[in-house]
Amino acid sequence: MTEHHDTSPETGRQRIVLDTAPSLGGLYAKAAGSTLVRGASTGIRRALKGAPLPRPGKRSPGGPDLGLPPVELVASGLAVDAEGHEAFCRVVGARPRSSPSGRTEAFSGYLHAMAFPVAMALLTRDDFPLPTVGLVHLANTVEHAAPVFVGETLEAVVRAEDLRPHRAGAAFDVVVELRRPPADGDTAPGAPGTPWNRPVWTGRSVYLARGVDVGTAAESERPAFVPPVPTARWQLGSGTGREYAAVSGDVNPIHLSAASARALGMKGAIAHGMYTASRALAMLDAPAPLRWEVEFGAPLLLPASPAVAVERDGRGSDLHDGTVTVWDAKRKRPYAVLRLHR
């Protein structure tokens, strides 16, 4: 891929415009490779066990600078592909909505998947200070401000920010904004070529780099998990990760098979966090505009049949608040809690 460099007048970040869509497979290879190149330790296996360099407490003066790169990646021409969207919806159980004009509204979870390669491109840059492989997805917040339609082409702007201490290491956000390109006659408020409109979809993913010491996190009491009354159960086969990888493009080996996951230090294949989130979101079946946030708990080891509880105050346009809890019924540990507000 080639890059064009620029500086955003709004954020002051260096704008790096990607002119070809990044491929996730390549990025994972790069992520794994960079870990090795850095000689972080004994390789992938070690790195994935949550021991990115420098190891906590062993950080030597003059170690790597952990500051996040002041850049933003811009990718335009991201198409909401009809076939890809349909396949994604089928896997996560989402019901594609038709707008009154007859167009199909894009499922919020799909938009995350569509922009994910851009985010990965950022995380795997050579100047990104934290190892990509081994990052733990803690939470996601999505502001889906307006309906997006299948067939539209969007522009994505991705940045990483807010590196902060976490009780298990360092947390930071990856922010993805999706905007519509200006239509004919639109007057761009900023410099030529810059997005003119506010984002139609903003996703903020919280990642944890385990064991990375950027200071002491304020101790916060995590409230004990009280399982709600279940209303459903998911049957997640061992192929769930492969199915989601096929439609999302996220081919992280920890999701693909027990063998590949174990090679990377996991107990077995785990479900994609965004699969869990998308499937939970699909159960609420609410149209945009909407805002949703998901918090991930224990890794969802496949195969699994987690308990699910859907709580909502209405349906469709009458839905204002909804919660989907996905948990391990036996151990009473949450896998994910998704909240939606409209």
Binding site: V229, P230, T231, A232, R233, W234
Partner: peptide
């Protein structure tokens, strides 16, 4: 034979009602 919308078996559904 599980409920398609919930994935719960009929017995699991009844168990919730039974408890309620």
């Amino acid at each position: 034979v599980n409920e398609p919308r919930t994935g719960l078996s009929m017995g699991e559904h009844q168990a919730i009602t039974t408890a309620a």
